[in-house]
């Protein structure tokens, strides 16, 4: 995903002179092509994420479309107040990019597990929250958030995620993507859970539907309404704490749809997510997902 992201960013930057990339001293063997091609629009801010985010706000005030880039919790939790107050309160054109979403950096431990940031970030006004599911979604979402003037958060996996979608996509802000049309049960997946979920349905020859949600905020309420009309049961799956994450957002969305009488009855909803715990054992992403039953 990170390769898909940087390639898309480079492509967009060739036609858009406002794009500026700041890294927090991370991105080895990823960001170099951007730095080489656009030295005037690249900055390594050092291991100083609060300053990095403040600088991004300052550059955005002066008209740049600024991307900040680092691992998991560093460009997000470490500088949450700069995101909230400098970037989002001023509604500035800053895109925060974290690689290593969920347990992507599994063996590196809790410091490198980004498993709470979706919930924290989606409470902040003006901020768009994205977690694409594969490299094709990553390219489409990167392009969409560049077209959108305002703050965005982009959660990426790492390198080498398999492709799920067959063809290149265009996606508008806040839209979900139908992947498999089915009946009775629909899986709603966000971020890098997409491939696992897709394979599970295919391998077990299930008749379930699969919908990828690269946008957690704003949530595709129209899409949720259509899903509710066609399925009795919904399962949400995410590599994030159960509290306040993607599944919570879906519950809120269905509650609001029911309250505003846009659906007559909310479907049965099961949430698969991390059960309010930290990981303190080593383990690859697949191992840690199984450990916390992030599986169907």
């Amino acid at each position: 995903m990170r390769t898909a992201f940087i390639n898309q960013l480079i492509q967009e930057a060739r036609n858009n002179p406002s794009i500026f990339l700041i890294v927090g001293d991370l991105g080895f063997s990823v960001v170099e092509p951007f730095a080489e091609e656009f030295p005037d629009r690249f900055l390594n801010a050092g291991v100083a994420e609060q300053n990095m985010t403040g600088i991004a706000a300052g550059l955005a005030i002066e008209g740049y479309t600024v991307f900040t880039y680092s691992i998991g919790n560093f460009p997000t939790l470490r500088c949450m107040e700069q995101i909230r107050y400098d970037v989002c309160y001023h509604n500035l054109n800053v895109k925060i990019v974290a690689v290593g979403g969920g347990y992507a950096y599994g063996p590196l431990g809790a410091s490198h597990h980004a498993t709470e940031e979706l919930g924290m970030l989606r409470t902040i006004p003006n901020l768009i929250v994205c977690a694409p599911g594969d490299p094709i979604e990553t390219r489409a979402v990167t392009s969409a958030i560049i077209k959108h003037t305002g703050p965005c958060y982009l959660r990426l996996g790492k390198a080498g995620e398999p492709i799920v979608h067959q063809n290149e996509l265009e996606i508008g802000i806040g839209k979900m993507l139908p992947v498999i049309e089915g009946k009775e049960t629909a899986i709603l997946s966000t971020g890098a859970m997409l491939k696992y979920t897709y394979d599970y349905i295919e391998d077990n020859k299930l008749k379930w539907g699969l919908y990828s949600f690269p946008f957690i905020k704003p949530l595709d309420l129209e899409g949720l309404k259509i899903i509710a009309e066609n399925y009795r049961k919904i399962i949400t799956i995410e590599e994030h704490q159960k509290s306040s994450g993607f599944g919570s957002a879906i519950l809120e969305g269905y509650n609001d749809l029911e309250e505003s009488k846009k659906i007559s009855k909310r479907p049965e909803i099961k949430r698969i997510a991390i059960p309010d715990q930290f990981v303190s054992v080593a383990g690859k992403q697949e191992y840690l997902r199984k450990l916390y039953k992030i599986k169907l």
């Binding site: 005037d40 900055l43 600088i55 300052g58 400098d86 001023h90």
Partner: peptide, 29 residues
Amino acid sequence: HKIQGVELSTGSLGHALPVGCGLALAAKR
């Protein structure tokens, strides 16, 4: 910053200098 002439909303301390570095860097670039 909703007031004419105020460049940046501040109140939480330690925010304006990083933003100012961004403004200064933009001017240089």
